[in-house]
Design a protein around this nucleic acid. Sequence first.
DNA 1: TAAGTATATAGTTATTTGCTTATATAAACA
DNA 2: TGTTTATATAAGCAAATAACTATATACTTA
Lengths: 114, 114
Amino acid sequence: MLQTSIEINKAAIILKLLGDNTRLTMMKLLDTQACCVCEFVEIFQTSQPSISQHLRKIKDIGLVREERKSQWVFYSLNKSSEYYPFIKSILEQLPNQDEKLKELDEKGSRISCC
Amino acid sequence: MLQTSIEINKAAIILKLLGDNTRLTMMKLLDTQACCVCEFVEIFQTSQPSISQHLRKIKDIGLVREERKSQWVFYSLNKSSEYYPFIKSILEQLPNQDEKLKELDEKGSRISCC
DNA sequence: TAAGTATATAGTTATTTGCTTATATAAACA
DNA sequence: TGTTTATATAAGCAAATAACTATATACTTA
């Protein structure tokens, strides 16, 4: 079967974006479910602007999309992106990160915002 | 079939290394055949130290290995690396870069060193 | 052994990156 | 409308990156 290939310099740009622990973990989490900014802030124990900046980078090249739901902004994988198959094939090989969300559930932090 | 997964922070390190146009193209070329430093210098039209430094980075985490053949050092993909399946699955999705080597052949530059 | 060729390493520098703090914007609600 | 909550943006800074030049090392060959 013919595999669609991605231009090599585009691939490099995407791999560089994925080549960051925070962004890669975000993408893996989003592969399972949409998340809002405040959840990421909890999970990564970092500042809210830092999270927003990471999200902006992956949004700018279309890997994720945002959807505002009242005061919260939810991010999800953009499955219509031309790069989605490429991304997906990488994420598939990573271990599930959902225990990070479970911890939030247990702490009650998740319910607080989402 | 159970897919072996790669630790997420290790994956991030590898993706960052691949997230550079020069290194990614190198890896794709090496996926086809071993290359020596001087070929890369020709192909990328950059300085020899720059090429050596890129090669060192991907060698340091074991993605490639080097083999000296008289005065030349040939690099090849390290198929024994624990990360090789991950790498391979990414490289498979990239367009073949061998025309870059063909150009060298045509210019005669390839024969000059290898 | 001296000279030439191929590669590696060291040191320097400009650019990029990711974080921080401060501030702006948007929505919810009293 | 004023306050609170969630998020985005701007500005500043330290660390990482990738290039360069100069130099060291390794091998070949005259």
